[in-house]
């Protein structure tokens, strides 16, 4: 296995910055912009082949019910918790960023939480709450919101 040291270093530095976690307070570090230069597919090893998944009314409702608490009703990252978090919820309508993330990375972020993909822990894990198919369809829905695909 080839290790990408530059990537590893960025990861370590990033994690170190994030040690103050999610609740806003006086001493909190300013919101950190995660590195966006990562090339898709470099870190995530083999993932099982994704089934074609549709965005249904159910997907939208799931997003509204759970995700809008932080990501906002329209996915713009402006949910009611947003201003209390040290790291702002990702704006799911922003193509520039989401193009740099693979579907697998988005899937992992939702299933195992932000930490699992080198992102902030303020993004909780939904793997015990949502079925895998639902999570796949949420990834497709986010692609719809940003009107973008991974490079």
């Amino acid at each position: 296995m080839i290790i990408n040291y530059k990537l590893l270093l960025t990861g370590i530095v990033y994690l170190a910055i994030l040690v103050t976690a999610c609740g806003q307070n006086e001493q909190a570090t300013p919101a950190v912009k995660p590195p966006t230069q990562q090339k898709a597919g470099e870190v995530i090893p083999q993932m099982p082949q994704l089934k074609p998944i549709q965005v249904t009314e159910d997907t939208r409702q799931t997003y509204q019910w759970y995700c809008s608490q932080c990501h906002g009703v329209k996915g713009k990252g402006d949910g009611i918790n947003a201003k209390f978090l040290t790291v702002p919820p990702r704006n799911h309508t922003k193509a520039e960023y989401l193009e740099t993330r693979t579907d697998e990375q988005l899937f992992e972020a939702i299933k195992f939480g932000g930490l699992s993909v080198g992102r902030a822990p303020c993004m909780p894990a939904w793997g015990q709450t949502l079925a895998e198919d639902t999570i796949h369809s949420l990834v497709r829905y986010i692609r719809e919101l940003c009107d973008c695909e991974a490079f």
Binding site: A21, C22, G23, Q69, C70, N81, F84, L85, G113, G114, L115, P121, C122, M123, P124, A125
Partner: peptide
């Protein structure tokens, strides 16, 4: 620490 990081309870 777990309340804030591992489980992200503090987000909500």
């Amino acid at each position: 620490y777990q309340f804030e990081r591992t489980f992200g309870c503090i987000s909500c």
